[in-house]
Every structure is written in C-alpha cells, then in structure tokens.
C-alpha cells in the first residue's frame, strides 16, 4: 500500500490551477445541465427567462417554471447532495483513517431504509410520503445506536465503532429482506425505487432544507480541519497537540451523519460518491483537510451533478430514467479502476 500509489506534491501554483479548473468545470456543467432536458431551452435565452420570471404575472411562462421549479432546484440539490456525501466521506475517512470508509458505513443507509420499510409494513405505502423525514431519522438513529453501543466505556474506539457500524448495516439489510418476505415485494416497490436514489424529487423545498444544513455542517466541519489533520497522526498524538480526541470524534461523527442523513432524506441512497470523491481528491490535493474539505464539497457536487444529468438525459428518448446511484457506481467505478491502473503503470 505504501509505495506505488503516491502522487508527488504539487507546487502552490498547481493548486490554484486545480481550483480554477474545478470551478470552471462546475459552472460549465451547471450551465449544460440547465440547458439539457426534454424541453430544449437554448443557453442564450436563459438569462432573459430568469430575469423576466420575476415580473411575470399569474402563471409564469412554462420555460421559466421548468427552469426554476424543476431544473435549477435539481441542479442545486445534486450539487449539494454530492458535496454533502463527499464531505461526509472525507470526514469519516479522516476519522477512521481508512480510505474504504464511506458515509453509509455506520449504518446510515441501512437505518433509513429499515425505518421506512417498517413504516410501510405497518401503515402501508402511503408512508412513502414521509420518506424524507423517516429516512433522516432512521439514518441518524442508526449512527446514534452505533455510537452508544461503542462508547459505553466512555471512550469511543474507532475500530470498534467501525465494526459495530458495519454490523448494524448487515442487520438492517437482513431485516429488510425479512420485511419484504413477510409483506411481499409489491408493497415495497416504492421503497426499492427509493433505495436506488433519485434526484427527481428535488424541488425548491428540498433545496431550502439542503442549503442551510449542508452549509452550516460544512462550515463547522471546516473549522475542525486542523483537528482532523491532528487526528491523522493518531489519537494520542492529537491529544498531545492539545485536542480532546473524544470530543472531536463525536463532533465529526455528528457532522458526517447530519450530512449523510440529509442527503438520504432528499435523494434516497446514492452510493459511491462518498467513497470515490474523497479518495480521489486525497491523491490529487493531499491529506490536508483545509484543502480537502472544500475540494470534496465542490468535487463531489460536480461529480453527482454530472452523473444526474447523464442519468436523466442519456436514455430519456427511450423512456429510461437511469437511477443516479447506478450511474455513480458505474462511472465512478470505471474512473477509479482506470486511475489505479494508470498509477501502477507508472
């Protein structure tokens, strides 16, 4: 693990270049996403439409509504969810010092799915109307359970926490299979779609929730950047540097779970983003969290936006709306493997 996959440090100028390119690419992508879709709205008209929509009386023009109510929220939501998942992944990977950890490892996705599943079992498919809330509660609940089970001796051992989190995920999967066998797959079809993750339901309300939660969580996480760097040296060394490892750990887990939980609430379970993006960025920009966290936010947002735009436009003529979780997995997996091979070849 030590030698082959390392990247030499880039000089300061290169870092600026990186940011410039990334932001430029993101803006470009956002523009493309605004334009693409079954209703074609040429780029040139967009500013005009946006400006006029404020003054329009009664029913806004169809294009304005499509842009403002459908596409723009979806774009913003995709960016925020992708960013949130990546930042959460970065936080957890930094905390557990394990590059294979992703935001769902502690049982976030399992908890969310099982709670909704239970709701459907008891109250019927109408419960799916409450899916965002239940999903969030289930997600945060699962992590809380993991933390409580681990921290009984007062000390939150990260290895133990990881193990317990993984166990909880397994238990949730098994429970879900059990639920489905009991009540039949039909009832859970809606849940199945939900677990595949989708940004189609992102409306202005979703954005209104995402923006503050992700914004605040990210800001707080950024404040812990030095602590995360210190923790990378080992808990005792971090303590020697004046940090309280227990407090930092709990805070980081809280922030990571919030980010993952709100993502799951809005978009269902979208996998791979929280694993791939932090991992990739670590190679590109190094392990300093002051840079890594913002890079994860933008990089993750970019990645998910790209995947979502692809998912909804690629096959729409054939009547297929690809689940975005599949695109992230496929695209992400391919990129990851390609990069690994390229490194080795060097």
């Amino acid at each position: 693990m030590k030698k082959d996959l390392r990247l030499e440090r880039k000089a300061g100028l290169s870092r600026r270049l990186f940011w410039f390119l990334l932001l430029l690419a993101t803006l470009g992508l956002a523009g493309a996403a605004l334009v693409l879709g079954s209703v074609s709205i040429p780029l040139g008209r967009i500013p005009e439409i946006l400006l006029r929509s404020g003054a329009e009386q009664g029913g806004n023009s169809p294009e304005a509504v499509i842009l403002l109510q459908l596409r723009l929220p979806r774009i913003i939501a995709a960016f925020l969810v992708g960013g949130a998942l990546s930042v959460a992944g970065t936080l957890f990977q930094g905390l557990f010092r394990n590059p294979l950890v992703e935001p769902y490892t502690l049982g976030v996705s399992g908890g969310a799915t099982v709670l909704i599943g239970l709701g459907i079992l008891i109250f019927g498919p109408d419960v799916l109307l409450l899916a965002p809330l239940l999903g969030f509660l289930g997600a945060v609940g699962a992590v809380s359970l993991a933390v409580i089970l681990t921290g009984r001796s007062g000390r939150l051992g990260v290895e133990r926490l990881l193990l317990i989190g993984v166990m909880i995920s397994f238990v949730c999967s098994a429970a879900l299979v059990g639920l489905v066998s009991v009540a039949g797959l039909d009832r859970f079809r809606g849940l199945l779609y939900w677990t595949m993750g989708s940004l189609a339901g992102a409306d202005p309300a979703a954005v209104a929730i995402l923006l503050p939660v992700v914004g605040v969580s990210f800001a707080l996480a950024l404040g812990r950047a030095w602590a995360l760097n210190a923790l990378a040296l080992g808990e005792e060394n971090a303590a020697g540097l004046g940090y309280d490892p227990e407090r930092e750990k709990r805070l980081i887990i809280l922030l990571g779970s919030l980010l993952a939980g709100v993502s799951v609430a809005v978009a269902g379970v979208i996998g791979f983003v929280g694993l791939l993006v932090p991992h990739l960025l670590r190679r590109l920009v190094g392990g300093d969290h002051r840079v890594l966290l913002p890079a994860a936010l933008v990089g993750g947002g970019f990645f998910l936006l790209a995947c979502d735009t692809l998912a909804r436009t690629a096959f729409s003529a054939q009547g297929i709306q690809f689940p975005v979780g599949a695109v992230t997995g496929l695209l992400g997996g391919v990129i990851f493997i390609a990069l690994l091979s390229a490194r080795r070849a060097r």
Partner: peptide, 19 residues
C-alpha cells in the same frame, strides 16, 4: 403522450410530460 418509446412502462421526467 408517451407515444412509441419501445418500452412497456417508460420512465419520464416531469418536464417531458409538461412539454
């Protein structure tokens, strides 16, 4: 309005329906 998309149960974006 779904027309002939070659699939029995096609999936659509909201904006396609609107369009």
């Amino acid at each position: 309005i779904v027309g002939d998309r070659g699939r029995a149960y096609p999936a659509l974006e909201v904006e396609e329906v609107i369009a």
